[in-house]
Design a protein around this nucleic acid. Structure first.
Lengths: 248, 248
DNA sequence: CGCTAGCCGGAGGCTTTGCTCCACATCGGC
DNA sequence: GCCGATGTGGAGCAAAGCCTCCGGCTAGCG
């Protein structure tokens, strides 16, 4: 068993009809996830793709595989936004533009909003892209700090908190209050700016936020513990060769 | 079919054992709601109260009735916090203390956090208390604006946005990142302070936010449309115009 | 063409949750 | 202590989702 981590493209060439169906599922998944988030019923996706539920499961053995395959493109947009922002001459313009951009992305796609807040243990590809975005975002903050246009105690974790908040506001306000989300982002950006004599309580650590993201993943039915993840990938659970991994 | 709006206290004297059970259910409900939010399974509440599910439904014919009965006390704390803050001499100390207080309340009780973001069409009592809090909060903002310690374009709707955000951060971070929620509140308070030459996009209207709260209520299985609500109360659906006091 | 590996759909088992209904138990006035 | 009004528990039905399995279909190679 070659342990290719997860087939972003199917292992071998699919038959023409199968490939067509696979694409239809991905397309429907993008639609449904965007509308209703990553915990949408998979049956709804199959229905919209005009495909049996069995077909969906054959192509994507778990929800996480489907999520990863459907949203690589979208999360790449996110990473690209971060790196493009580094090209901006003015550090504050770069950072604030990036913040507005990703918050708008979240507001426009509930699936992406969810994905940006969780870790996908089974998809190295997604995590690599996220890491790329993280590096760029950290650099964006560092530059703005150096230029004195951002409060010196701002951290990358603050950006993540903002994204959690933005995601819930976008989900709650939706079309009922379309100006809520931009308003909130503007307020957050105000809070990022430096202000003399104002100290913030200490931020959460990167490790803490990683744990948060792992728990959020679990809430969407994505098992982030290594054993379950490995099993899902067809890999070997650590210490392999036990009859069955304990997790069920 | 008596059309008493909703029995905050049971219609007539309950038998001793029944009253004891009712109290046990309320107590369990407060626990479970606090831990897991207003969408917790009612069976879990019955189980923890060591009571049959039938008993729970007999006493509280719908989830909304149970929520209202279990959380009147908590939401009263919220309204009291607002009114007490009006007693504070320094307007900014009053407002910021209030904000920190309610956000801490939300962080400590997921049920309350949820309740503060939704309208309870079937419980005039809850809505009256909320209205009391709204009036006080509006006054708090007005005072702080007058004193120049808060940005002039801040509105009551911004407070609600903050509460939505705070609720989701508290829920996500939980015990994994206990400093996340205070950190976020501190940032929001920074954004409330005045800053020359900074304009915010226009805030959502009160009516829009009311619609948002109604939809959030529906998400917890609370039917907020007048017809369903009235039916649930055994009252008459149409015409009666005494509905909610319009916020503001 | 004909054949088969590969693919398809959805029936159906399982779990969770909501809510109803009724045979039985208990309280408490007399 | 009797006995009916009152209360109790949980069996049971329905709906929604997850996921597996298998009888039948077809694409596309030879």
């Amino acid at each position: 068993m070659a342990s290719s981590n997860q087939p972003a493209t199917p292992a071998r060439q699919l038959r023409a009809d199968a490939a067509r169906n696979r694409e239809a599922v991905l397309c429907a998944a993008r639609e449904v996830f965007a509308e209703s988030g990553l915990d949408s019923p998979l049956e709804e996706i199959a229905r919209r793709a005009r495909v049996g539920i069995g077909t969906l499961y054959r192509r994507f053995p778990s929800r996480e595989h489907l999520i990863a395959a459907a949203l690589v493109g979208k999360i790449t947009e996110y990473a690209d936004a971060a790196e493009n922002a580094l090209g901006e001459a003015d550090p504050w313009a770069g950072l604030s533009g990036f913040v507005r951009k990703i918050c708008a992305l979240q507001a426009g796609d509930r699936g992406l909003a969810d994905l940006l807040l969780m870790t996908m243990a089974t998809s190295g590809e997604i995590e690599a892209i996220r890491e790329r975005a993280n590096r760029a975002a950290t650099e964006l903050i560092a530059r703005a700090k150096a230029a004195g246009t951002v409060r010196p105690d701002l951290t990358g974790e603050d950006l993540l908190l903002m994204m959690i908040a933005n995601s819930s506001i976008a989900a709650a306000a939706g079309r009922d209050a379309p100006c809520a989300q931009p308003r909130f982002v503007a307020l957050m950006l105000e809070s990022f700016q430096p202000r003399p004599d104002s100290a913030l309580p200490r931020p959460p650590s990167a490790a803490e936020m990683r744990r948060v993201m792992t728990r959020l993943a679990a809430a969407y039915g994505c098992h982030a513990d290594p054993a379950a993840a490995a099993e899902l990938c067809g890999g070997h659970p650590p210490q392999s060769s036990l009859g069955q991994p304990a997790a069920h």
